[in-house]
Design a protein around this nucleic acid. Structure first.
Lengths: 267, 267
DNA sequence: TCTGTATGTTTGTCGGACATTACTAAGGGA
DNA sequence: TCCCTTAGTAATGTCCGACAAACATACAGA
């Protein structure tokens, strides 16, 4: 007796705390509440909306999580614009949970990263370049100490590489691209963690590529910057292949055996 | 007395409800809690964590908003993977609040959309193509009624175009790309709402481009599909130029004067 | 077997309470 | 007059207890 003229409709009941967050969200999105503006206290809101303070608090939790409001100080709740960083973190987490493959990430990156580099060559200012230089200096140092056998330099190399690409994107001044590429880059470059120990020459090649890219960006040469990036990304894939790492399996497998120490699946 | 040997540390106090969500989140991310698994009731959790039920509820609200848990039924709280749709919606909202320009969106799209089309030509299955056909049929109809003077066909055209591009991306079977391009596409194609009334021939050209793309995808010809998409996206920009719409201002201005009714651009 | 009812459980919401800690304003010293 | 200290106020974070509505399960009846 499935069909009786109507499809399965979700028809979710409207709970009070959902209405609170929905109402505030609507006011933020249509501009009645503007970023930076301070919201009333919980008690006042409770009386305004005619609900209990607990209910207000649950609604606020939701908006807080979405990044539409933020605590400027422990007492001040202000309207805010979601930070790209948080959004990227969440997307990244989702991609990990979706168990996307290296290949999916790489294919996306080969489209977005060179564009980011080209834009960076066009739009980078002195500060951007300074940041890139600083990053590169640290990467050079970390690579040296990794070659010297430092055990924990690997994680730093990954972090610095991830940051380098974010900096390039930021220098490009395209916020849509930044937001789109960030989660992909974050996850993709984390794959280098597995690459380094099997391909000792990888970090060196990386240092060269970064240097070339910074040079092209500094010179304001979009084509060359894009080429360096393409080469860099292709090189990454080749390294992955040479290291014998599989490209059609999840970057970060969802718990093959569990977590670190004991992690026995409970009966 | 600023410096006493330490930089300004964030040092945000760990509130109980944050620890609840953080703890559950950690268990989900490292696999101790698996997608689909059901969580204990609120009372039980409260005693497990040694906090009050209200506190548990606030923590759950956060996880719910992040999409890491979901209510399967009003009584069942299960672990889940964040839905791309929600993530895209949120990113889209953020981009709108950031007041990204048409140019930023377009520049990103010209990199991602052709790739999506190429992948679609490679990976689309029968169902994907059926969905594209269905979408195209509706677009054709909507365009016809728009040309006949139907007032509200404009919104449907925008919705169908947005959906078309999502379907193409979905047919490409690259989840990273889908997630990256969705918010950009959503916002970019909404710009067509303003385009249609000033450029009556736009929908017609669009119908042709979509048809060509579907044909290329059906034929499994990545290069041709990509070319159609590039042409389609470039055409969109040209249309925007010809219509005299500015490309370096926010797509969706944050409340020029307020909400729908008047909506005349203020001086 | 299917349907309807009774019981128990869980969520959503409420009201009130209290400790801690930001903010504020009054007061004292230079 | 201005600055610093100090007390007071108010808001948040957390807790407790309570209740209605909804849902799930078991059971009785057709």
């Amino acid at each position: 007796m499935a069909a009786m003229g109507l499809d399965a409709k979700p028809l979710q009941v409207a709970h009070a705390y959902q209405m609170v967050s929905a109402e505030l969200e609507a006011r933020i999105l249509d501009g009645r509440l503007r970023p930076g503006e301070q919201l009333p206290g919980e008690v006042e809101m409770a009386s305004l909306f005619g609900v209990n303070r607990s209910t207000i608090r649950e609604g606020i939790r939701k908006l807080e999580t979405e990044g539409l409001v933020r605590r400027a100080s422990p007492r001040k709740l202000v309207v805010s614009i979601p930070r790209s960083r948080d959004l990227a973190t969440r997307s990244s987490r989702a991609l990990r949970l979706l168990e996307v493959t290296f290949d999916e990430l790489w294919t996306t990156a080969i489209a977005t990263e060179p564009l980011a580099a080209e834009l960076a060559a066009r739009n980078a200012d002195a500060e951007d370049i300074a940041r890139l230089d600083a990053n590169h200096a640290r990467l050079t140092a970390a690579t040296a100490s990794a070659e010297a056998g430092a055990p924990d330099a690997r994680g730093e190399i990954v972090a610095l590489d991830t940051q380098f690409h974010s900096l390039v994107a930021a220098a490009g001044k395209n916020r849509a691209l930044m937001l789109a590429r960030e989660p992909v880059g974050f996850l993709l470059y984390s794959g280098m963690e597995a690459l380094v120990p099997r391909l000792p020459q990888a970090p060196g090649r990386q240092v060269d590529a970064h240097a070339g890219m910074i040079e092209a960006i500094r010179a304001g040469d979009p084509a060359r910057a894009g080429d360096w990036m393409r080469k860099h990304i292709r090189d990454f894939r080749r390294g992955y292949e040479m290291a014998g790492l599989p490209m059609d399996v999840p970057i970060a497998p969802l718990v093959p055996g569990g977590a670190r120490p004991g992690a026995e699946p409970k009966a």
